[in-house]
Design a protein around this nucleic acid. Sequence first.
DNA 1: TCTTTACTCAAGG
DNA 2: CCTTGAGTAAAGA
Length: 98
Amino acid sequence: MKFKKEVYKLVRKIPKGRITTYGEIARALRTRAYRHIGKILKENRDKKVPCHRVVLSNGKVGGYNRGVNTKIKLLRKEGIRVVNKKIIDFKSRFYKFN
DNA sequence: TCTTTACTCAAGG
DNA sequence: CCTTGAGTAAAGA
């Protein structure tokens, strides 16, 4: 399954302090299986893959394996401002592939 | 086949 | 602001 592999590969490229969306990943892979990407990231527990930097396209945080709260904490630690599950500087922190 | 999924987009109220 | 419904593809039953 190249899907998993490609997704991980992309997500690993996200620099610290930046974020991206499931939709952006799907676009980079030329697929429309947005939902499946979330599932893949959930199954993955590799520390090299910063799943917490992947959020919803509407600026909300989305889900996380160890709880949304954990995800928010990690994001805050990287200097991203999150209020009520929303990314404040969503636009300026967005990481676009290619 | 059928179901589920950490999603997205568009439409309607 | 909210809720639906459709689209989507891997994994497991």
